[in-house]
Every structure is written in C-alpha cells, then in structure tokens.
Computed example of a mutant assay.
Amino acid sequence: MNPYVLMVLLSSLGLGTTLTFASSHWLLAWMGLEINTLAIVPLMAQHHHPRAVEATTKYFLTQATAAAMILFASTTNAWITGGWDMNNMSNPIASAMIVTALALKIGLAPMHFWMPEVLQGLDLLTGLILSTWQKLAPLTLILQTAQAVDPLLLTAFGLMSTLIGGWGGLNQTQLRKVLAYSSIAHMGWMIIVLQYAPQLTLLALLTYIFMTSAAFLTLKISSATKVSTLAVVWSKSPILTATTALVLLSLGGLPPLTGFMPKWLILQELAKQDLPLTATVMALAALLSLYFYLRLCYAMTLTISPNTTAATTPWRIRVTQASLPLALFTTVALGLLPVSPTITMLVT
C-alpha cells in the first residue's frame, strides 16, 4: 500500500477513536465510530484476496448495522429527554439498545458470530488492529452508559462471552480464529466487572492489549497461521518459541504471569459484591480458555513435526522485521504481576 494512503488511513483511525473519546454528544460519538470503520475497511481489503474481501464485507455490514442501531437509539433518547447528552440516558429501552449495538461492534456474545470469520480473512497486522484498537472507542461508550443499563444485561453478556469464547476455541485449527475466540472471552471478563469497578475493566483491557499484541507479532514474525505449523517454529527461533509459550499461558491467566492479575482482581471484586456463583462460573470458563492455550503451547514446545510436514520448514534465518515492539509487549505480558499493588493503586 502507498505509504501516504497508509498514513491517511492510520491517522483517520486515530482521529475516529479520539473523537469518540472526547465527545459527550451522541452524534459526535457516532461520527467517530463511523470514521473508525471507514478507515479500517481499505486496510482489510488491501490484499485483494477473495477471503479478505469477504471478511471486509462481513465486517462492514456488521458495523453498519450496529451504527444504525446506535443512531436510532440515541435519536429515540433525544426525542424523549430533549437532549443528545450521553450522561442523560433516562430511557431504559434506548440504553439497552445502545449497549447491545456496542456489544455487536466489539464482538460480545451472542453477537460474536462475525468476529472469528472476519479475523480469519485478514492478515495478522490488520487483525491486531481489529482486536485491539477497534475495541477502544465502543468500550469507552459502554463505560459511559453502563450505569443507565440493567445490570442483568451486562452480566448476561459477560457470562455468555466467557463461556462461548472458551467453548468456541476448543476445536479450532486456525490460529486467527483461536485469537478471535480469545478476544471474545477477554471482552466478557471486562464487561462482567464494568458495573462494579470500571477501573478493573480498563486494567483488563490494557493487559489484554499487551498480551494480544505480543501474540500477533510473534505469529507475524513466525509466519504461522495454523496450529500444525507451530511445531516447526522452534527451528527458526527457539527463544521466540519459549517466550511465545509463556505469552499464551499469560493469556490463559496462569500465575506468575501478567494475565493472572486482571482475572484475580475481577474474581475478587465479584466475591466482594456477593456474587460467588458468577465468580465460580467465570473461573470455570477461564479453564476452557486455558485448555486451548495449552494446546498451542503443546504444539509449539512439546511436539516434533513429522518428516512430511504440510508446512514449509523454516530454517533459522535472520529476522528482518522490527522486533522491538514484540520485545516490549512480551516483557509487559510476562512480568507485571509483582507490581500488581502499584498498578491497582494507580487505577483506583
């Protein structure tokens, strides 16, 4: 892609998210979401592959549906209350409709069906943008409107997302679909605690962004898109293979890695709110996700590929791609648990 065009598209992505962050008016927030969507569509379709075009079409139709729902709900709320202010969401039907539309935008269950299919059709860097940056603006709007929504709706979204994110990833052979279901499960953890401790939602979002960025950049450097190709990654870079296994375990939430911190604090908060059953279901759903992360670790570190491997055997070559972001994200994804008290003081 032409670097000038790429610069314009990336700037538009930043502009759309910033506009949504800074707005207190529903029309401006809707405009920021639309700028975001229109900026990422050319990035998704840049390879002109039928699979990429199909994924782009599915994404565009899904986002257009969600945007129409947001516009309709905000117009309904403005008609009833007389203003477009986000903090004046007195109509419960409009509030529920807006949160449902935003859940469709970020791929929360049961509106998650587009997420694995779209991510599977993209290259890894565009998939990274879709899994991280594109979640920021809708989550900000959910944070601002969560207090006007029925808590049962948010709890249902959170529980369904963690369960479906865990079950859906169990039988996948494509790494991008595994990461898509991982995204759905992590979004469930963020939504479930949103009404009780929004700062924990932000903490979970930040740690998820670091861990997922490390995973996507590792797969980009390794040129791995299937579970079967992970068995030959060790011959290209043994150290990268070891750190990738730890990043996957961190995504699963195992101590003493960074990914354990948000899950631990969220379960603690749910227990404080007298929701032991919800906390138990969330912890059991985390075991489902941990299982498919362990599958990937097993394929990477404990198996030797057969002699007739379906993938091209990678030899140990000089990595020409930028690895400084990968090193930074991997370090953060592995080593932040000891400073949990400091982080919790900063976010509370």
Results as ranks from 00 to 15, higher is better:
residue 342 T to C: 07
residue 12 S to I: 13
residue 116 P to V: 07
residue 48 H to L: 12
residue 9 L to D: 15
residue 233 V to K: 11
residue 162 T to L: 08
residue 53 V to H: 12
residue 307 N to Y: 10
residue 32 G to W: 01
residue 328 L to A: 12
residue 240 L to C: 04
residue 188 G to S: 11
residue 115 M to V: 14
residue 348 T to Y: 15
residue 306 P to K: 01
residue 27 L to G: 13
residue 254 L to Q: 10
residue 14 G to H: 09
residue 129 I to D: 03
residue 26 W to K: 00
residue 138 P to S: 08
residue 332 V to W: 06
residue 249 L to E: 03
residue 248 L to F: 09
residue 4 Y to Q: 15
residue 152 L to W: 14
residue 317 I to K: 13
residue 67 A to L: 09
residue 163 L to H: 08
residue 308 T to K: 13
residue 320 T to W: 06
residue 273 Q to A: 03
residue 270 L to R: 03
residue 335 G to V: 06
residue 236 K to W: 01
residue 56 T to H: 07
residue 152 L to D: 13
residue 146 A to F: 11
residue 22 A to H: 12
residue 335 G to I: 02
residue 261 M to W: 12
residue 323 S to Q: 15
residue 223 S to T: 11
residue 84 W to E: 06
residue 238 P to H: 11
residue 115 M to F: 09
residue 18 T to K: 14
residue 310 A to M: 14
residue 126 T to N: 11
residue 97 M to R: 03
residue 150 D to C: 05
residue 17 T to Q: 04
residue 54 E to G: 04
residue 27 L to V: 15
residue 221 I to H: 08
residue 107 G to D: 11
residue 249 L to Y: 01
residue 198 P to T: 05
residue 6 L to R: 15
residue 88 N to T: 13
residue 210 F to H: 10
residue 204 A to N: 05
residue 78 A to Y: 01
residue 15 L to K: 12
residue 110 P to A: 08
residue 7 M to N: 14
residue 4 Y to K: 15
residue 172 Q to L: 07
residue 340 S to N: 03
